[in-house]
């Protein structure tokens, strides 16, 4: 795994449904990854220590040891192998739990396999070997913008900002996925909890609120960039603090 540029990234796919691993593994292989599979949490832990994969895709509900336990055990041992958890984190309580768990990303079944490939690539791009991901940092800093995730408070140049709960959650998601193009549909699914037909408009409303409060110019953004027809991207450089 030392020479990342020349070797295909190694992925461990963990799911107790063989119908899923049997169909998803070849798809990921064609997308250019080396794929191993495991059928439950205990197997997953063994494989992770043997194979040292570059990334693990982990289902949550599994026999013997579920995905959350696997994740917790790894993180407690200081293992920061990037992990994409197959679950939904729509609600504030679940998001808080997800943060404590320290997964790098979440995706809800049934998903578009191409979307999974895109997520894998962006998680791998963001990952810094052996270091905790932004998703596991309690404070996010971008220039004079500070996001305190424990208290759900946002500060700009030391001044606390007044934001609606949805705008706070949206900013949190954008800041933990910097420099990544994120579609409105994905924001709806992960921040709002469900993707509904008129929801994209709600996303635009909250983005406008964030820009207004952050004093960000949509034409020359410091923080949130619009990618016309595709979605949004957090343009600033984000550092995580414990």
């Amino acid at each position: 795994m030392s020479n990342r540029d020349n070797i295909s990234p190694r992925i461990l796919l963990v799911d107790d449904e063989t119908a899923i691993t049997a169909n998803l593994a070849p798809f990921l292989e064609r997308a250019g990854f080396l794929v191993g599979t495991a059928a439950d949490g205990v197997q997953a832990v063994e494989q992770i220590s043997h194979l040292k994969p570059d990334l693990v895709i982990l289902d949550v509900l599994m026999p013997r040891m579920d995905g959350r336990q696997v994740l917790r055990q790894l993180r407690q041992q200081g293992d920061w192998t990037p992990i994409i958890l197959l679950t939904q984190v729509g609600e504030a309580s679940e998001r808080a739990m997800a943060l404590e768990e320290g997964a790098d990303d979440y995706i809800n079944k049934p998903f578009d396999p191409r979307e999974l490939v895109a997520r894998i690539r962006s998680v791998l791009r963001r990952a810094r070997p052996g270091q905790p991901p932004l998703a596991a940092a309690w404070k996010l800093v971008c220039g004079s913008l500070l996001f305190d995730r424990r208290a759900h408070r946002v500060f700009l140049e030391g001044e606390e900002l007044t934001l609606t709960p949805k705008a706070v959650a949206l900013l949190e998601y954008l800041m933990t996925h910097p420099d990544e193009l994120i579609s409105r549909e994905r924001l709806l699914e992960t921040v709002w909890g469900w993707d509904y037909p008129v929801g994209t408009r709600s996303v635009d409303t909250r983005i406008a609120e964030l820009r207004r409060v952050l004093g960000d110019d949509a034409a020359a953004p410091t923080y949130i960039e619009t990618v016309p027809g595709e979605g949004y991207r957090f343009a600033g450089k984000v550092e995580g603090q414990a």
């Binding site: 998803l24 798809f27 079944k109 049934p110």
Partner: peptide
């Protein structure tokens, strides 16, 4: 939801394989 999403997921992945 739980019982249906796994088969649906497998079907989507299978179809994505076929498309390739």
């Amino acid at each position: 939801d739980h019982e249906l999403k796994n088969p649906l997921m497998a079907m989507r992945a299978g179809l994505a394989n076929l498309t390739g």
